[in-house]
Design a protein around this nucleic acid. Structure first.
Length: 162
DNA sequence: GCCAACGTTGGC
DNA sequence: GCCAACGTTGGC
């Protein structure tokens, strides 16, 4: 069976927790994306993320908030070990090693964008009107992005802010 | 720091 | 299975 077409995703992170610079500084510029504790986001990670999928790295709760870098999915999903660790803030008493609840994937940095594409800029771009991250009240930390939206964000990053 | 939006929990 | 209470997210 043919591989599904490459998909595009947006991953949110608070830079105070883990920034794109942290990813660039990680060994192999690679990390395991742990800590996702939302079922919809979990389902995307576990069922839909494929090695080679493209990722927009978004800084939330940041000044400025916006898309800062590109990454790539580097593994299929596997259980997030922090769910089993009672001393970890992401511990989940429902989870057992033989019945994991939460999953993550590895991602690897591709490159920083030439400049941050900020949230207000994204909002002003009519071509991005349907992007999940712009929806009012949206809190999902893992979101699908259309190929055209992905390309548009890259295009914006290569141009002056407007 | 505020607070709207949203997901989850738990009593019934 | 409903839904109020609660906790969290994240823009502002």
């Amino acid at each position: 069976m043919a591989r599904p077409a490459k998909r595009h995703w947006l991953l949110k992170s608070e830079p105070g927790e883990f920034s794109f610079a942290d990813l660039l500084a990680a060994p192999g510029r690679r990390t395991f994306w742990d800590g996702v504790r939302n079922y919809q986001a979990r389902n995307s990670l576990r069922d839909d993320f494929q090695v080679g999928d493209a990722v927009l790295f978004y800084h939330s709760n940041a000044e400025p908030a916006g898309v800062v870098g590109l990454a790539e999915v580097a593994s299929r999903a596997y259980p997030d070990a922090t769910q089993f660790d009672p001393d970890h803030p992401h511990f989940d008493p429902k989870a057992r090693p033989e019945a994991p609840v939460w999953y993550g994937v590895e991602i690897v940095a591709v490159r920083a964008l030439p400049r941050v594409v900020t949230l207000p800029e994204l909002k002003r771009n009519a071509a991005l009107a349907d992007m999940g991250v712009l929806r009012r009240g949206n809190r999902l930390s893992v979101q699908a992005v259309e190929a055209a939206e992905f390309a548009e964000v890259l295009r914006m990053a290569s141009r002056r802010p407007r």
